[in-house]
Amino acid sequence: MKISKTVLQALAVAVIVTSVAACTADGVNPEKEKTAKTKHMDPCPACGMG
């Protein structure tokens, strides 16, 4: 299904920024202030509870 470019761009920016933030939270980059301002998303359980 075709998704609008605006939605895709916003998604790309959000997940790439979050993945960078996850790296910094692991200690790769010690810019604490930057990581504190970025919302970190948790893994989601959905199914797979086997």
Binding site: L11, A14, V15, I16, T18, S19, A22, M41, D42, P43, C44, A46
Partner: peptide
């Protein structure tokens, strides 16, 4: 697909 960085990436 949920609000999950790795799935979305």
């Amino acid at each position: 697909c949920n609000l999950d960085t790795n799935i979305l990436l």
